[in-house]
């Protein structure tokens, strides 16, 4: 869907982006991850031409992005910044309506779409439709921000540290809601963050950058178990285990689990989505207070699979050994 080919950008003597190339598949969520100054934001902004590359080319859907005017390009790309980019002099509804208005949608269509989005993002239209940004909390503002980017239903979404300014509780709520949005599943998303955990939670593939170059581009498992160089290894070292638990889905380790129902009635059982991570499962068990609680899932073949905490962790270690070979 998006092809980035050898793009270069220098500011004075500094090479912010040093000849990098990568692809983003349709429907994929690619995360650009790195420390401050690694070039991830510059790269992102070259995709919607807020910055023009000094060299190289970017194609979206096979078309060079320079073949149309920047304004036309941007109206078909959703752009989410940190929360204080809502227009303070527009209501929530007016903010969301910005791109649809630029695309000359009619009033009714805009109104319906706005209400739809507010509801999807858990913002009550009655309370918030005519509110001004300064009347909303930080978390609510960021939801509006996302709604605004999604308003015209663009196929591509660019997000620059979208949850960076939020407190951990609000952030985890939004990330969860965000992940549940069906609309997003079909979109091609490029997201910039410096938060490793966020990257591993949300990314299908992660691109670790340093000093304008790509250190490694791969799935969370690839990065964890097959780091390409010492930079990647030390980058992820501290949080290796947490990241692994958060990145690996139950679906991927459920093959060796049993399907039969246990005999004992004293056993507690809870069902969760097969797309949940190991970490999610452990948190659920912990919340049940009975550490012997059994987790059940329906895998992609529609089979029921069951595992205790012990069996989950054993399956993980088998996977790890397999991957480490």
């Amino acid at each position: 869907m998006i092809q980035v080919d050898s793009i270069l950008k220098s500011f004075g003597k500094i090479r912010a982006v040093d000849g990098i190339s990568f692809d983003v598949k349709e429907g994929e969520n690619l995360v650009l991850l790195g420390a401050s100054g690694c070039g991830k934001t510059t790269t992102l902004r070259m995709i919607n031409r807020l910055i023009e590359p000094d060299g190289g080319q970017i194609n979206i859907n096979g078309q060079d992005i320079r073949s149309q005017s920047p304004e036309t390009l941007r109206r078909n790309i959703g752009y989410v910044l940190q929360h204080n980019s809502l227009f303070p002099h527009y209501t929530v509804a007016q903010n969301i309506a910005i791109v649809p208005k630029l695309l000359y949608w009619d009033k009714n269509r805009i109104e319906n779409r706005t209400i739809e989005l507010l509801e999807k993002l858990n913002l009550s239209p009655d309370l918030h439709y005519n509110a001004y940004p300064n009347q909303l909390s930080g978390g609510q503002q960021q939801r509006v921000n996302v709604a605004r980017a999604l308003a015209a239903n663009p196929p591509v979404l660019l997000m620059d540290e979208p949850f960076g300014a939020l407190d951990p509780i609000t952030r985890s709520n939004i990330v969860k809601d965000f992940g549940d949005l069906d609309e997003l599943k079909k979109k091609t998303i490029v997201m910039v963050t410096h938060d490793v955990q966020e990257a591993f939670e949300m990314g299908d593939r992660i691109c670790i950058m340093d000093k304008g170059k790509i250190m490694q581009l791969g799935t969370p498992s690839e990065l964890l178990f097959h780091p390409a160089n010492s930079y990647v290894q030390s980058f992820l070292e501290k949080q290796q285990l947490t990241l692994a638990y958060k990145a690996i889905k139950l679906e991927d380790i459920s093959e060796e689990w049993e399907s039969e129902v246990r005999k004992s009635e004293k056993e507690n059982e809870i069902q969760i989505s097969s797309n949940s991570s190991i970490w999610d499962a452990m948190e659920k068990i912990n919340n049940e207070k009975d550490m012997n609680t059994i987790i059940t899932i329906r895998n992609k073949n529609n089979q029921v699979k069951r595992a205790s905490l012990n069996e989950i962790l054993t399956a993980y270690s088998h996977l790890k050994n397999k991957l480490n070979k």
């Binding site: 919607n48 304004e71 941007r74 078909n76 752009y79 204080n84 630029l102």
Partner: peptide, 24 residues
């Protein structure tokens, strides 16, 4: 940030001027 958001959403220079910069 507001100016950048406006630009990033696809507003032309004049639209940014009249809809964002001047009112604010």
């Amino acid at each position: 940030a507001i100016k950048e958001a406006a630009k990033g959403m696809g507003m032309s220079v004049n639209q940014v001027l009249f809809k964002v910069e001047l009112p604010l």
